[in-house]
Structures are given as C-alpha cells and as structure tokens.
Design a binder for these strands. Structure first.
Lengths: 204, 204
DNA sequence: CGTTTTACTGAACGAGTGTTTAGTCTATTG
DNA sequence: CAATAGACTAAACACTCGTTCAGTAAAACG
C-alpha cells in the first residue's frame, strides 16, 4: 500500500483539474477515478463522499481567501486572480476552478464575493482619502459593483473568448481589457497616474 | 384529446418556469411533467427530446433578440433586461431564464452577448459623435466590457442579493446599483445630463 | 357510421449516478 | 514471524436520467 497522504494529495490534484474543466455537477467520481488511474470506490474511501471531495478541493485551492477577512488583507484575491494566468497552465486551471466555484453558488461563492467586496471597499476608501480619486457617494455599493465587474469577464469567458478571438488569459488580450476597463472607470483625477491596484481590480 | 397547440404552449410555459428556477441541467423532464400535470412521455411526444424542448423555450422567450442584428436595433436587449423586472413576476422569471441561458453556454449565450455587444458599440459610437462623451481609444473593447458588465450583477445575483439584502429586481436596489454604476462610468462630460440609455446599460 | 389519426399514459429499458459491500493484497506493527 | 491495519478494487445496489414502446381513448375525417 502506498502512502495514504501522497495518494490523497494526488487525488485532490486530479479532482481539481477535472472540476475546473467540467464543473462540479458535470464531473462524476468515475471520471476523476479514470483520470487518476484508480477506482471510484477509492475516492469514497478517502473522502467519504463526492460533496466532501468538492469541499476539500475548494479548501485546498481557495481556502486561504475564505477565512478571516482582516488578517490576509495583504494578499488580495483580486491580485491573485490577475497573477494566476501568468503562471503558465496551472494558473489558467486555478482561474477556471475559481469560475466553477462562483458558478456553483453556495457558501464558497458567497465568501469569495464578500472577500472581493471587502478588498474593493478598502481600496476605494484609501484612494478617496488620499485624494487620488474624486469622492464617491455610496462607496459600499460602488465597491460591490467593482467586485462583480472584476469577475464578469472570467465568468463569461467562453463567449468573450469567441468575440475577442483569444482567451482572456492571453497577456495581449488581458492587457487590452485592462486598458479599456481603466478607460471606463475614469475615476482618477485627470493628470494623475493611476495606481497599479486600480488597474488589476477592473480587469479580471 | 385536447388541442395540440394549446397543450404545447402550456408545456413550454411550464418548462420555461422550471428552467428559470432550476437551470437546464438541473431540470428533469419528470419535474416539468409533474408541474404541468402530464406524463414525461408527453413531453418527448411533443418535442422529440429534452434538447429540442430547451431550444423551443429559448426561441420563445429570447428568439427575437437572437435573429438579424441590424433590423431590431430599435428594440435593444439591454433595455428589455432593465424593463422586465418592472412587469411583476413574469419579468423576474424572464430575467432568471436569461441568466440560465447565459450560464448554460453554447450558441444562444454567444448570440445574446454578441447582441448586447453590438448595442453597446452603437450607443458608444453615437454618444462619442454627438460630443456627449469624451473619445474612447478602443470602442470595440469598451463596448464588450459594457455588455459584460451589464450582465454581471444578474449572473451573480445570488451572492449579490445576500450582500445587498434584497433582490436586484427590487426597484430600490436596482436604482441604487444604477446610480453607483453611473458614478463609476464617469464617461459623461461634467455638467452634461446623462442620457437615459446610458443609465440602463450600466445597471442590469 | 367506421376508419384513421393523434394526444396521452404506464411501464419498462439502458445508461449513468453516488455509494456500499465483501474481499484482496501489502506494508507496518507487536 | 504472525497479526493487524489500511490502501485498494470489482461487483453490486438503489436511484435518476432521457427515451422507447405498447396500448387507450377520443377527436377528426371519409
């Protein structure tokens, strides 16, 4: 018998890959089992149920952004989302997995959106106080919209890809989208250089 | 035997309702059959397959916006999306159905996004030419982002609802979102009154 | 009228699902 | 070395799915 820990980690790895590609509902335990070269029963043996396996993959990939809001403010989710695509194929898979989590609804999607909402509000508040940005009447709602807009191109990535003729993870496409979103969010006072964080927020 | 046409229409009506609530993949023929008070076999008898039934419900609800782009420019999809919620429960169901179509991917989602892209580009072009708006470097990409951003709150309506404490179809919530999005898209030259179409585009 | 058509149903089929069970094999332990 | 524990599997179970089939009943047609 092999090392139980190694096997578990490998299974989570494969499961995450298939979930990212096919979605949670569209993935059967047998699909994961075949791709991992094991039996479906082994998945149940290790994780108890499909639901628990799903929860473990989510915890492994996105767990650090689903816990205490305040402590991890220095590792923003929005920044991670924009940096993942640069890390070759693994990053694209992470992005696709994140999309599936948001589409699956439930508590994880709720927590992740709340997290991005929190980050956007912090960013807006800081920029307003420093005078880089003109005042906003309802910062809370504006921050929520920024969070939602940030996820939108990813969630609609399939049809967007066909229109743009390339995936949104392509550096060229990504840059074009970032530039356009910056142009739309003309929050910055003219003559000032927009901070980098602002650019990342509106893009992905 | 009842009128075949009446029965078909009734079945499409019920199917649309269930699809809007549960999604296409999450709806079984038996669920629709029970809710319509018929047998599952009757659905196959009338429509041939589940896939064909799905296509008929999409055609019935959104067909007019999925055909010739140019001819129907006077009935924008984005405007319909913002007006549906005002027509009581039926409008909310239409909105939910639209969301499910976008989430299901495939050709219908593609056509609908292309339609909103087309509309947004026309709007941007007109506003730029008339001088109401400052120039935009890449109108095509900006229009795509506007279209995507317009759908975003609807597609993420579930977690958004929990954060805002009310559905985005509530007039109060809807107005708040529209006001904030207007504030974000500060495209209008200061001192000018924003046209109504602009407001609708950024809201829903 | 009798015949044909067709809306409609209950039951079953085959495929796929998550999960359970009984059992095999092997590394570790006492 | 013998016993135990646990990784692992093939097979089956109970269920749901879309779809098929044989048959019923009633409307439409000649």
């Amino acid at each position: 018998m092999r090392s139980a820990i190694d096997s578990r980690e490998h299974l989570i790895e494969v499961a995450t890959k298939v979930f990212a590609r096919e979605g949670f509902a569209g993935t059967s335990l047998r699909m994961i089992a075949v791709e991992a070269g094991v039996s479906a029963a082994l998945l149940v043996h290790h994780f108890g149920s499909k639901q628990r396996l799903i929860e473990e993959t989510i915890e492994t990939t996105l767990g650090e952004w689903m816990r205490d809001k305040d402590h991890l403010a220095e590792l923003p989710l929005s920044e991670a989302l924009s940096q993942w695509p640069q890390t070759a194929q693994d990053g694209q898979q992470k992005l696709a997995f994140f999309k599936q989590v948001m589409l699956s609804g439930g508590k994880p999607a709720q927590l992740l959106l709340e997290r991005m909402h929190f980050e956007a509000r912090e960013r807006l508040t800081a920029m307003t106080k420093s005078g880089v940005m003109r005042d906003i009447a309802d910062i809370d709602t504006a921050a929520l919209l920024l969070a939602v807009y940030g996820m939108a191109p990813l969630i609609l990535s399939e049809p967007v890809k066909k229109i743009l003729g390339g995936d949104i993870t392509d550096p060229e496409i990504s840059e074009k989208l970032a530039r356009s979103s910056l142009e739309l969010f003309a929050l910055i006072r003219e003559g000032q250089t927009p901070p980098q964080t602002k650019e990342r927020a509106g893009e992905k």
